[in-house]
């Protein structure tokens, strides 16, 4: 039986030391057994390594930054669609997801499918809403308070034990061992990312993560837990190993079951010495290490494409425990003519 051939666009080609998930997603797509692919890279910047990796990416188009707005993005995607007839699109950046979620209906009409969470799911799992989210769904989340001024910190800090975690709305985290430090972090982080700031209980333990996919009806189509073995100075996993952990799988199924999560997600947990699992974050996309799920026997990346194509997708019921990923970097040699082409025409 001949396999279908899909043209799939993928963002997040920035396979750098704090990598985007795009190249991992592309490798998953290339490993898919149920279909063949032509890969269209979508890049924001002209030095994203994936642009130049022609054995993995067939053609790359630059797309406007999320801050340019949906209309501009849609125009560009329509142009790319005319050239390439896209069947599916995998957005991979947090910052771009909102726009793609909003455009889902329009793109679907044009035949470009995606599997994404809804706006409500996307908003509800946001850092500043997570504590409430956990309470509603019976999942442990470190207690957090929103603060708007250094005086607010003084007011709420009594109900926490030191150290506390001081978190920005989007990025940046600091650990404070006293009120003064917390206020210092407040100033530094709020100057960069605005208000509110979160004061969060510090949870001691080991960080464990799950890469999973949901079908939007409450079923977990796949889930693979992983522990980081080596972390770079930017806090990114450079190596990790799949774990046998029934509790993690059960919590993951509970999250996906309760929220009817649609699409990929990464759950970040802190496992305490008492074996309690605190949910720290929900990332509404594949993590950069998602190729490990393929290596462990769950090509979650392939499953979502089939789900979008209306195929019957069976949930994975197992994966190989003890599979490692070890990231590596290499220097590509690139001619300036290629750099010139992507920089001046926006295509390569």
């Amino acid at each position: 039986m001949s396999k279908p051939r899909y043209t799939i666009a993928v963002t997040g080609l920035n396979a750098i030391d704090s990598p985007g998930p795009g190249m991992a997603v592309i490798r998953g797509l290339r490993d898919a057994e149920s279909f063949d692919v032509r890969i269209i890279g979508l890049s924001y910047e002209n030095l994203e390594p994936g642009i130049y990796m022609h054995d993995l990416v067939d053609k790359t188009y630059q797309v406007p930054y999320p801050s340019e707005g949906q209309e501009v993005l849609l125009n560009r995607l329509e142009y790319i669609h005319r050239q390439e007839q896209l069947d599916f699109l995998y957005p991979n950046f947090d910052a771009e997801l909102f726009n793609f979620i909003k455009l889902e209906g329009v793109l679907a009409q044009k035949g470009i499918r995606m599997v994404l969470p809804t706006v409500d799911q996307f908003e509800a799992r946001h850092k500043i809403n997570l504590y409430k989210y956990g309470k509603e769904h019976g999942i442990l989340v470190p207690r957090a308070e929103m603060v708007f001024s250094p005086a607010d910190i003084a007011r709420v800090i009594g109900s926490f034990e030191f150290p506390v975690v001081v978190k920005g709305k989007y990025y940046d985290t600091g650990i404070a061992y006293n009120l003064q430090q917390a206020q210092q972090h407040f100033h530094k982080i709020s100057a960069k990312w605005g208000l509110p700031i979160l004061i969060q209980a510090f949870v001691h333990g080991t960080e464990v993560n799950v890469c999973a996919i949901g079908d939007g009806k409450g079923t977990t189509l796949g889930a693979v837990p992983m522990r980081k073995l080596y972390i770079t100075d930017k806090g990114k996993a450079w190596a990790g190993i799949t774990l046998d952990d029934e509790n993690l799988l059960e919590i993951t199924q509970r999250v996906i079951g309760a929220t009817h999560w649609r699409g990929p997600l990464e759950l970040e947990f802190m496992k305490t010495t008492e074996d309690a699992y605190y949910l720290l974050e929900i990332n509404p996309r594949f993590p950069a290490w998602c190729y490990l799920t393929v290596g462990a026997g769950q090509n979650q990346i392939e499953s979502l494409v089939n789900l979008a194509m209306g195929k019957e997708v069976q949930p994975f019921d197992s994966y190989e425990v003890g599979k490692l990923f070890i990231r590596y970097s290499e220097d590509m040699i690139v001619n300036i003519s290629e750099f010139e082409q992507i920089s001046t025409t926006g295509e390569l």
Partner: peptide
């Protein structure tokens, strides 16, 4: 100067 990393041209064309 062509900003390495940054390209605003494509977006600007439509904006």
């Amino acid at each position: 100067r062509v900003q390495t990393g940054i390209t605003s041209k494509v977006g600007a064309q439509y904006g």
